[in-house]
Simulated scan of single mutants.
Amino acid sequence: MGGWWHEVWLTVAREFSDLDDVKAITQVVIRLGLALLLGGALGFEREMARRDAGLRTHMLVATGSALFVLVPLQAGFSQDNMSRVLQGLVSGIGFLGAGAIIKLSAEREVRGLTTAASLWLAAGVGVAAGLGREATAILSTVIALVILGGVRMFKPLVPPHTHDKPEQDEPSKRVE
């Protein structure tokens, strides 16, 4: 017996063979799980700062970035091909970060730069985790959290930014 059901079963089994042993499964779970947790830590800080891109966004960016490098590693991509994957990933994250930046014309200010930078960093943390550089991913996250949370404590000491430029319509007061 066997027939076509047997062929279907064998095809399905081959399709799911990328995680064929406990070592491979553990490696993927650790790398993606760490990216998820570290992205979550960055996103939690952004949530506490009441920013638009928060917990879920940072978790998705970090986990997605880890996945984008983990799969090519599993597939045996060359260093050149992995370089192209990373170039595409960095470009895509730049586009996502640009969406987090808002220019408020009336107030003449730009907002969202720190959130865009934290998304960029979350992608880097995800890449490190996906490549199996767990300690680097953790250290980078700790440094980022110190920057995001710790430096905020010193912000009240910095005088407010003022625009000292003359208005465009104002005639020049230059003496000749």
Rank of each mutant, 00 (worst) to 15 (best):
W5F: 11
T141G: 12
W120F: 03
P160Y: 08
K23P: 13
S172Y: 07
A135H: 12
E15T: 14
V71L: 13
G112F: 02
V12S: 04
P160H: 11
R108F: 04
G149L: 14
F95W: 06
S105W: 09
L55T: 03
L37R: 04
K155H: 09
A123T: 06
A13D: 13
G124S: 01
F154P: 00
V151W: 13
A123K: 01
G43F: 02
G126D: 01
T63W: 07
L19D: 12
A128E: 14
L37S: 10
V127F: 05
E45Y: 03
Q87H: 12
V12M: 11
I102D: 05
G124Y: 02
V125F: 07
T115Q: 00
L10E: 09
L89D: 06
L96P: 14
A122M: 05
S91Q: 10
R108Q: 15
E109S: 15
W5Y: 09
V142Q: 08
F68R: 03
A62E: 01
Q168S: 11
D80C: 04
A53T: 05
W9A: 13
I101K: 03
G112Q: 00
V61F: 06
I143Q: 10
L148A: 02
R46H: 00
A137L: 03
G124D: 02
E47P: 14
H161C: 10
G126I: 00
R108H: 14
G126M: 01
L119M: 11
L67V: 09
